[in-house]
Protein backbone atom coordinates (compact mmCIF):
# COMPACT_ATOMS: atom_id res chain seq x y z
CA UNK A 1 0.00 0.00 0.00
CA UNK A 2 1.37 3.37 -0.94
CA UNK A 3 1.14 6.58 0.95
CA UNK A 4 -1.32 7.86 -1.60
CA UNK A 5 -3.62 4.95 -1.00
CA UNK A 6 -3.34 5.44 2.72
CA UNK A 7 -4.03 9.09 2.26
CA UNK A 8 -7.19 8.32 0.34
CA UNK A 9 -8.13 5.64 2.82
CA UNK A 10 -7.86 8.16 5.64
CA UNK A 11 -10.01 10.56 3.70
CA UNK A 12 -12.56 7.88 3.04
CA UNK A 13 -12.57 6.91 6.70
CA UNK A 14 -13.35 10.44 7.74
CA UNK A 15 -16.00 10.79 5.09
CA UNK A 16 -17.78 7.57 6.02
CA UNK A 17 -17.72 8.47 9.65
CA UNK A 18 -19.24 11.85 8.89
CA UNK A 19 -21.91 10.28 6.75
CA UNK A 20 -22.94 7.92 9.56
CA UNK A 21 -23.07 10.80 11.97
CA UNK A 22 -25.15 12.88 9.66
CA UNK A 23 -27.58 10.01 9.17
CA UNK A 24 -27.88 9.42 12.86
CA UNK A 25 -28.38 13.13 13.38
CA UNK A 26 -31.55 12.93 11.35
CA UNK A 27 -33.10 10.99 14.21
CA UNK A 28 -31.05 11.88 17.24
CA UNK A 29 -30.88 15.46 18.31
CA UNK A 30 -27.64 16.59 19.95
CA UNK A 31 -25.69 14.01 21.87
CA UNK A 32 -22.74 14.37 19.51
CA UNK A 33 -20.37 13.04 22.12
CA UNK A 34 -22.54 9.96 22.59
CA UNK A 35 -22.75 9.30 18.88
CA UNK A 36 -19.01 9.84 18.40
CA UNK A 37 -18.21 7.57 21.33
CA UNK A 38 -20.53 4.90 20.06
CA UNK A 39 -19.09 4.93 16.58
CA UNK A 40 -15.51 5.06 17.83
CA UNK A 41 -16.22 2.05 20.02
CA UNK A 42 -17.65 0.22 17.06
CA UNK A 43 -14.62 1.02 14.93
CA UNK A 44 -12.27 0.19 17.79
CA UNK A 45 -13.79 -3.28 18.30
CA UNK A 46 -15.19 -2.17 21.58
CA UNK A 47 -18.55 -2.12 23.34
CA UNK A 48 -20.40 0.75 24.84
CA UNK A 49 -22.22 1.17 28.09
CA UNK A 50 -24.75 3.96 28.02
CA UNK A 51 -25.92 5.29 31.35
CA UNK A 52 -28.77 7.61 31.93
CA UNK A 53 -32.11 7.91 33.57
CA UNK A 54 -35.07 6.39 31.75
CA UNK A 55 -36.68 8.26 28.90
CA UNK A 56 -33.81 10.31 27.56
CA UNK A 57 -33.21 8.30 24.38
CA UNK A 58 -30.66 5.67 25.22
CA UNK A 59 -32.44 2.92 23.38
CA UNK A 60 -33.32 5.25 20.55
CA UNK A 61 -29.71 6.10 20.00
CA UNK A 62 -28.71 2.45 19.88
CA UNK A 63 -31.53 1.56 17.60
CA UNK A 64 -30.65 4.40 15.26
CA UNK A 65 -27.00 3.35 15.15
CA UNK A 66 -28.15 -0.12 14.22
CA UNK A 67 -30.39 1.32 11.54
CA UNK A 68 -27.63 3.23 9.77
CA UNK A 69 -25.35 0.24 9.75
CA UNK A 70 -26.17 -2.61 7.48
CA UNK A 71 -25.80 -5.14 10.27
CA UNK A 72 -27.97 -7.61 12.10
CA UNK A 73 -29.49 -6.27 15.24
CA UNK A 74 -30.89 -7.90 18.38
CA UNK A 75 -32.35 -6.48 21.48
CA UNK A 76 -32.45 -8.05 24.90
CA UNK A 77 -34.47 -6.47 27.61
CA UNK A 78 -32.69 -7.37 30.78
CA UNK A 79 -34.97 -8.28 33.65
CA UNK A 80 -34.31 -9.85 37.02
CA UNK A 81 -35.61 -13.20 35.88
CA UNK A 82 -33.61 -13.24 32.66
CA UNK A 83 -31.39 -16.32 32.49
CA UNK A 84 -28.01 -16.73 30.70
CA UNK A 85 -29.56 -19.22 28.39
CA UNK A 86 -32.01 -16.58 27.27
CA UNK A 87 -29.04 -14.62 25.97
CA UNK A 88 -26.62 -17.11 24.56
CA UNK A 89 -29.12 -19.79 23.57
CA UNK A 90 -29.39 -23.39 24.61
CA UNK A 91 -29.62 -26.96 23.33
CA UNK A 92 -33.19 -27.91 22.54
CA UNK A 93 -34.72 -31.18 21.45
CA UNK A 94 -35.35 -31.37 17.75
CA UNK A 95 -37.39 -33.98 16.03
CA UNK A 96 -36.34 -34.93 12.52
CA UNK A 97 -38.63 -35.80 9.68
CA UNK A 98 -38.05 -39.43 10.53
CA UNK A 99 -39.22 -38.76 14.05
CA UNK A 100 -35.72 -39.10 15.43
CA UNK A 101 -35.06 -36.73 18.29
CA UNK A 102 -31.77 -35.04 18.89
CA UNK A 103 -30.37 -32.03 20.71
CA UNK A 104 -29.67 -29.01 18.59
CA UNK A 105 -28.21 -25.64 19.64
CA UNK A 106 -30.71 -22.89 19.46
CA UNK A 107 -28.80 -19.60 19.07
CA UNK A 108 -29.74 -16.87 21.43
CA UNK A 109 -30.09 -13.20 20.55
CA UNK A 110 -26.40 -12.70 21.20
CA UNK A 111 -25.66 -14.12 17.77
CA UNK A 112 -25.91 -10.83 16.00
CA UNK A 113 -23.74 -7.93 14.93
CA UNK A 114 -25.27 -5.32 17.12
CA UNK A 115 -26.71 -6.33 20.42
CA UNK A 116 -28.74 -3.93 22.44
CA UNK A 117 -28.58 -5.01 26.07
CA UNK A 118 -31.28 -2.77 27.40
CA UNK A 119 -31.21 -1.97 31.09
CA UNK A 120 -28.42 -4.45 31.60
CA UNK A 121 -28.20 -3.73 35.30
CA UNK A 122 -31.71 -4.98 35.93
CA UNK A 123 -30.54 -8.55 35.43
CA UNK A 124 -28.73 -10.49 38.07
CA UNK A 125 -24.95 -10.59 38.00
CA UNK A 126 -25.11 -14.20 36.90
CA UNK A 127 -26.98 -13.27 33.76
CA UNK A 128 -24.83 -10.19 33.20
CA UNK A 129 -21.79 -12.42 33.24
CA UNK A 130 -23.16 -14.37 30.34
CA UNK A 131 -21.88 -11.56 28.18
CA UNK A 132 -18.30 -11.74 29.44
CA UNK A 133 -16.97 -14.30 27.00
CA UNK A 134 -18.90 -12.92 24.10
CA UNK A 135 -17.68 -9.39 24.62
CA UNK A 136 -14.03 -10.24 25.04
CA UNK A 137 -13.41 -13.39 22.95
CA UNK A 138 -16.28 -12.95 20.57
CA UNK A 139 -17.25 -16.55 21.24
CA UNK A 140 -20.05 -18.25 23.08
CA UNK A 141 -19.56 -21.55 24.82
CA UNK A 142 -22.59 -23.66 25.56
CA UNK A 143 -21.86 -26.98 27.10
CA UNK A 144 -18.76 -28.20 25.39
CA UNK A 145 -19.27 -26.38 22.16
CA UNK A 146 -17.81 -22.95 21.43
CA UNK A 147 -19.60 -20.85 18.88
CA UNK A 148 -17.91 -17.91 17.19
CA UNK A 149 -19.71 -14.65 16.78
CA UNK A 150 -19.55 -12.96 13.43
CA UNK A 151 -17.64 -9.72 13.33
CA UNK A 152 -18.37 -7.05 13.91
CA UNK A 153 -19.91 -7.93 17.25
CA UNK A 154 -20.90 -4.82 19.04
CA UNK A 155 -22.71 -4.65 22.35
CA UNK A 156 -24.56 -1.52 23.20
CA UNK A 157 -25.74 -1.75 26.76
CA UNK A 158 -27.84 0.73 28.58
CA UNK A 159 -28.17 1.00 32.28
CA UNK A 160 -30.01 3.10 34.74
CA UNK A 161 -28.11 4.86 37.46
CA UNK A 162 -27.27 2.50 40.30
CA UNK A 163 -29.23 4.51 42.77
CA UNK A 164 -32.45 3.43 41.12
CA UNK A 165 -34.45 0.65 42.65
CA UNK A 166 -34.18 -2.84 41.26
CA UNK A 167 -30.74 -2.54 39.76
CA UNK A 168 -27.69 -4.75 40.20
CA UNK A 169 -24.27 -3.23 39.80
CA UNK A 170 -22.24 -4.66 37.00
CA UNK A 171 -19.26 -6.72 38.11
CA UNK A 172 -15.88 -5.03 37.71
CA UNK A 173 -14.80 -7.61 35.14
CA UNK A 174 -17.90 -6.89 33.13
CA UNK A 175 -17.43 -3.17 33.35
CA UNK A 176 -13.84 -3.45 32.20
CA UNK A 177 -15.01 -5.06 28.98
CA UNK A 178 -16.86 -1.97 27.91
CA UNK A 179 -14.72 0.25 25.73
CA UNK A 180 -16.51 3.42 26.72
CA UNK A 181 -19.02 4.29 29.34
CA UNK A 182 -21.08 7.15 28.00
CA UNK A 183 -23.31 9.23 30.18
CA UNK A 184 -26.45 10.63 28.65
CA UNK A 185 -27.87 13.70 30.27
CA UNK A 186 -31.02 15.66 29.74
CA UNK A 187 -31.11 17.44 26.41
CA UNK A 188 -30.70 21.18 26.29
CA UNK A 189 -33.88 23.25 25.90
CA UNK A 190 -33.15 24.10 22.27
CA UNK A 191 -32.60 20.39 21.60
CA UNK A 192 -35.88 19.62 23.31
CA UNK A 193 -37.66 21.87 20.80
CA UNK A 194 -36.05 19.98 17.99
CA UNK A 195 -37.01 16.65 19.53
CA UNK A 196 -40.60 17.78 19.89
CA UNK A 197 -40.69 18.98 16.32
CA UNK A 198 -39.40 15.71 15.01
CA UNK A 199 -41.31 13.25 17.14
CA UNK A 200 -44.76 14.79 17.46
CA UNK A 201 -45.56 14.84 13.75
CA UNK A 202 -47.34 12.20 11.88
CA UNK A 203 -44.18 11.16 10.10
CA UNK A 204 -41.17 10.54 12.19
CA UNK A 205 -37.70 10.83 10.65
CA UNK A 206 -35.95 7.66 9.70
CA UNK A 207 -32.28 6.97 9.22
CA UNK A 208 -31.08 5.08 6.19
CA UNK A 209 -28.29 2.54 6.00
CA UNK A 210 -25.01 4.14 5.03
CA UNK A 211 -22.35 1.67 6.14
CA UNK A 212 -22.16 -2.05 5.56
CA UNK A 213 -20.23 -4.73 7.40
CA UNK A 214 -17.19 -4.76 5.09
CA UNK A 215 -16.77 -1.04 5.26
CA UNK A 216 -16.81 -1.23 9.04
CA UNK A 217 -14.16 -3.92 9.02
CA UNK A 218 -11.97 -1.82 6.71
CA UNK A 219 -12.41 1.15 8.99
CA UNK A 220 -11.34 -1.03 11.90
CA UNK A 221 -8.15 -2.02 10.11
CA UNK A 222 -7.46 1.56 9.11
CA UNK A 223 -7.84 2.80 12.63
CA UNK A 224 -5.42 0.27 14.07
CA UNK A 225 -2.79 1.15 11.48
CA UNK A 226 -2.34 4.69 12.68
CA UNK A 227 1.16 5.04 14.18
CA UNK A 228 1.64 6.48 17.60
CA UNK A 229 4.90 7.96 18.86
CA UNK A 230 6.43 6.59 22.00
CA UNK A 231 6.13 9.89 23.80
CA UNK A 232 2.38 10.04 23.16
CA UNK A 233 1.98 6.43 24.16
CA UNK A 234 3.96 7.19 27.29
CA UNK A 235 1.56 10.01 27.98
CA UNK A 236 -1.35 7.57 27.78
CA UNK A 237 0.42 5.21 30.14
CA UNK A 238 1.17 7.97 32.60
CA UNK A 239 -2.47 9.02 32.53
CA UNK A 240 -3.51 5.48 33.32
CA UNK A 241 -0.92 5.03 36.03
CA UNK A 242 -2.07 8.25 37.60
CA UNK A 243 -5.34 6.51 38.43
CA UNK A 244 -3.48 4.01 40.60
CA UNK A 245 -3.15 5.18 44.17
CA UNK A 246 0.08 3.26 44.84
CA UNK A 247 2.18 4.55 41.96
CA UNK A 248 4.48 7.58 41.92
CA UNK A 249 2.31 9.09 39.21
CA UNK A 250 -0.75 9.04 41.46
CA UNK A 251 -2.70 12.22 41.71
CA UNK A 252 -3.56 13.46 45.22
CA UNK A 253 -7.24 12.86 44.54
CA UNK A 254 -6.38 9.37 43.41
CA UNK A 255 -4.48 8.67 46.57
CA UNK A 256 -7.38 9.85 48.65
CA UNK A 257 -10.40 8.39 46.92
CA UNK A 258 -9.37 5.54 44.60
CA UNK A 259 -9.15 1.88 45.56
CA UNK A 260 -8.15 0.44 42.19
CA UNK A 261 -7.05 2.26 39.08
CA UNK A 262 -7.65 1.55 35.45
CA UNK A 263 -6.37 -1.71 33.96
CA UNK A 264 -4.06 -1.98 30.96
CA UNK A 265 -7.25 -2.41 28.99
CA UNK A 266 -7.91 1.19 29.88
CA UNK A 267 -4.61 2.25 28.29
CA UNK A 268 -5.50 0.22 25.20
CA UNK A 269 -8.76 2.07 25.06
CA UNK A 270 -6.97 5.42 25.26
CA UNK A 271 -4.56 4.53 22.49
CA UNK A 272 -7.05 2.90 20.11
CA UNK A 273 -9.64 5.56 20.72
CA UNK A 274 -6.89 8.12 20.17
CA UNK A 275 -6.08 6.58 16.82
CA UNK A 276 -9.67 6.81 15.66
CA UNK A 277 -9.83 10.34 16.98
CA UNK A 278 -6.69 11.19 15.00
CA UNK A 279 -8.21 9.82 11.82
CA UNK A 280 -11.40 11.70 12.42
CA UNK A 281 -9.29 14.86 12.60
CA UNK A 282 -7.57 13.99 9.36
CA UNK A 283 -4.26 13.11 10.97
CA UNK A 284 -2.16 10.00 10.58
CA UNK A 285 -0.55 10.29 13.99
CA UNK A 286 -1.95 10.25 17.46
CA UNK A 287 -1.55 13.40 19.51
CA UNK A 288 -1.89 13.95 23.21
CA UNK A 289 -5.09 15.78 22.50
CA UNK A 290 -6.50 12.61 20.92
CA UNK A 291 -5.57 10.69 24.05
CA UNK A 292 -7.32 13.20 26.24
CA UNK A 293 -10.35 13.57 24.00
CA UNK A 294 -12.10 10.41 25.17
CA UNK A 295 -10.28 9.78 28.42
CA UNK A 296 -13.37 10.30 30.55
CA UNK A 297 -15.60 7.67 28.85
CA UNK A 298 -12.60 5.35 28.54
CA UNK A 299 -11.57 5.34 32.19
CA UNK A 300 -14.51 6.50 34.27
CA UNK A 301 -15.90 2.99 34.71
CA UNK A 302 -12.44 1.50 35.28
CA UNK A 303 -11.59 3.57 38.33
CA UNK A 304 -13.01 2.07 41.51
CA UNK A 305 -13.52 4.37 44.42
CA UNK A 306 -12.64 3.44 47.96
CA UNK A 307 -14.97 3.78 50.89
CA UNK A 308 -14.11 7.42 51.41
CA UNK A 309 -14.76 8.20 47.77
CA UNK A 310 -18.07 6.36 47.82
CA UNK A 311 -19.09 8.02 51.08
CA UNK A 312 -18.33 11.46 49.75
CA UNK A 313 -20.00 10.62 46.42
CA UNK A 314 -16.90 11.54 44.47
CA UNK A 315 -17.44 11.40 40.73
CA UNK A 316 -14.64 9.59 38.95
CA UNK A 317 -14.83 12.22 36.24
CA UNK A 318 -13.58 14.74 38.79
CA UNK A 319 -10.57 12.58 39.54
CA UNK A 320 -9.85 12.00 35.87
CA UNK A 321 -10.11 15.68 35.05
CA UNK A 322 -7.63 16.42 37.81
CA UNK A 323 -5.31 13.79 36.40
CA UNK A 324 -5.57 15.30 32.92
CA UNK A 325 -4.79 18.70 34.35
CA UNK A 326 -1.82 17.57 36.42
CA UNK A 327 -0.16 15.17 34.00
CA UNK A 328 2.21 17.11 31.75
CA UNK A 329 2.46 16.43 28.06
CA UNK A 330 5.81 15.12 26.83
CA UNK A 331 8.16 17.91 25.82
CA UNK A 332 9.92 15.91 23.13
Amino acid sequence: MTTTQIDSQVGEFTEQFQRVKEEISKVIVGNDEIIDGTLISLISKGHVLLEGIPGIGKTKIVATVADVLHLTFSRIQFTPDLMPGDIVGSDVVHESDTGEKHLAFQKGPIFTHILLADEINRATPKTQSALLEAMQERTVTVGTTTHELQPPFFVLATQNPLEMEGTYPLPEAQLDRFFYKLKISYPEPHHMHEIMDRTTRREEPEAGMVLDRDQILVMRDTARSVPIARAVQDYAIRLTLATHPDTPHANPLTQQYVRFGASPRGTQTLVIGGKVSALLNGRVHVSCEDIRAFMLPALRHRVLLNFEGEAERIDTDTILEAIMKDTPEPSE
Binding site: A229, A231, R283, H285, S287, E289, E332
Partner: peptide
Protein backbone atom coordinates in the same frame (compact mmCIF):
# COMPACT_ATOMS: atom_id res chain seq x y z
CA UNK B 1 0.56 21.02 15.30
CA UNK B 2 -0.84 18.40 17.68
CA UNK B 3 2.44 16.55 18.10
CA UNK B 4 2.91 16.09 14.36
CA UNK B 5 6.60 17.11 14.16
CA UNK B 6 7.31 15.39 17.44
CA UNK B 7 5.80 12.10 16.26
CA UNK B 8 7.48 12.32 12.87
CA UNK B 9 10.88 13.04 14.40
CA UNK B 10 10.47 10.12 16.79
CA UNK B 11 9.70 7.71 13.95
Amino acid sequence: LNDEIKSAYWF
